[in-house]
Design a protein around this nucleic acid. Sequence first.
RNA 1: GCCCGGGUAGCUCAGAGGUAGAGCAGCCGCCUUGUAAGCGGCCGGUCGGGGGUUCGAUUCCCUCUCCGGGCUCCA
Length: 637
Amino acid sequence: MPSVTLPDGKQLEVKPGTRARDVVESIGPRLARDAVVAKLGGEVVDLEAPIDGGGLFEVLTKDSPEGLEVLRHSTAHAMAQAIMELFPGSKLTLGPPIENGFFYDVEVEGRITDEELPRIEERMREIAARDLPVTREEISKGEAERLYEDNPYKREIIAGLEDGDITVYRQGEFFDLCRGPHVQSTGRLGAFKLQNIAGAYWRGDEKNTMLTRVYGTAWPTEKELKAYLRRLEEARARDHRKIGKDLDLFTFSPDVGGGIPLFLPKGEMLRHLMEGYVRDVQTRHGYDHVWTGHLVNESLYEKSGHLEHYVDSMFPPMVEGETRYRLKPMNCPSHMTLFNSRAHSYRDLPLRYAEFATLYRYEKSGELNGLTRVRSLTQDDAHVFCTEDQVQEEFARALEIVREVLDTYGFNEYRVQLSMRDPDDSKYIADEQKWARAEQELREALDAAGIDYDEEAGEAAFYGPKADFMAKDVLGREWQLSTIQVDFLQPLRLGCEYVGEDNKEHTPVLLHRAVTGSTERFLGVLIEHYAGAFPVWLSPVQAVVIPVADRHNDYAREVSRRLGEAGIRVEVDDAQSSMQKKIRENARQKIPYLLIVGDNEAEAGTVNVRRRGEKQQEELDVGTFVEAVLEQVRSRE
RNA sequence: GCCCGGGUAGCUCAGAGGUAGAGCAGCCGCCUUGUAAGCGGCCGGUCGGGGGUUCGAUUCCCUCUCCGGGCUCCA
């Protein structure tokens, strides 16, 4: 008799006709209640699937990643059913589970607006209450095509499937072409909520029809759903656009143009401190800083290949006679031109050019988003010209800078995505050998540094592979921040050369790297990461002196003068309002230190220190306080 | 660029086919304060722009613009 192996190693014999749920029930009734799907020999299957032996048998509950995914997928089906019932004649397309939830793209008969979401949600609950059995059915390609006679989207999907490999899931009147698996019945869904409506092109191609996408979230329990919604709420409260406004950091104005952030004094102070910090680290690691302006003759981008690959992302040219200028969208060609401005010996290498460069990229208007997607940005870009033998070492050096900087900002957790070329895609400059070598160099360098990475085909830059650093912020959200790229192709195109030990001319290898990416975007991420409460070294205003009454203004100014002379960014709040109100307002501005001074402090030459986020105060000698703050700034804690 | 939603005072928001509201901020005055909003007064708006329907539009319709949520791309 055939048998399956349970996770504890026990063998279980299965009679012909046994289904997964029978096996689960034989293990235990409690498990049977929690089971969503099963996994047989590594493949996730329905509980109704027949089991005729064949390897490891595992039970997946809503709490397992796969079980949760199934739950979300089934919730998407319930939503699709609700939409079909409420908007008859609509055409379903795709409805997959995604992180935290699901969506379904539908060509709706009529229109779904936000007001409709509660209605759809209610109908979904009704469908769940009906507890319709969910059944799987294998059908032939011909049957599938007939079933979807008037649905061109599903027919397109069917066309790409193998006959004999097509399944339909049914629940009540509703059916959907679907690979599955799914929960046993609509009564076994968890807690869900529909979130928003969006447009989405069929197959993500803007030449295709725009479909209506409805997003929802689904969780095993009401409690988990609530917790997730709370997390979303918290993320909203941290939105850098909101905090940027509240803390007077930056603004946007249609008078200047969309996607062009304007920095107020405090925002500019942050930029200044962030860039100064990276500049110091780079200088310590032997990078030299350069400056290459804002306009570049277009012909340079023709030579480098950027014009061909990125013309859509460049602002239109400015024409002067025969010459066409472009706002600089990237620095590599300018830095290579710097390299070419003089002859080089192998003794000059590696040569490391870094620049905080203002770049202009034409992002489509709908793409702009606060500081994270802008049209004018400042990249902390660097290009290292080196010999092939030096690639490993220079990569390691760049890596060290990245690690040091990310660590300082408290991004302790990150993963690396190694983006490789898709050999079949023509957008990549062809040179089999050089690509292979560049990809190998990157792998070896990451291995040598002991860093884990995932490889992703088709994500590389047109000139070479890249290692992108995806860092997690305090809310666990991932951001792509740093990048290191190996380029064997552009230096050749732009004729970069050095004379080697052999007295012959060689083409250097070019390493591109950015640590914070763009100052604007990184600042946006930092604002959300810190929720506006920047560490002391980075705070635009580090301390505010608050006099208890007007008669303490002179002493407050005296304290402020001493702090200012020590290099601390300090202000006196001498507005005509109560001390309590000043504390409230400055606390809301996330000032690290509020220094209350009244009769006692003026008498003793001290300040009463109220630390950000703490109610407990401490009275300190002014000199002691200054030293403590300076130490915090020095250590960037 | 495309789909959906929005734009009312500097900010957060209420309102409704018939003379536009609140709180905060700002300004003036009183108070002189001991750890998260002291009190009173005043100022403040082409209800995003343009067009249409109407006796009358900020409200209904069209259009443009800007903002937001998505789709797509990212050197």
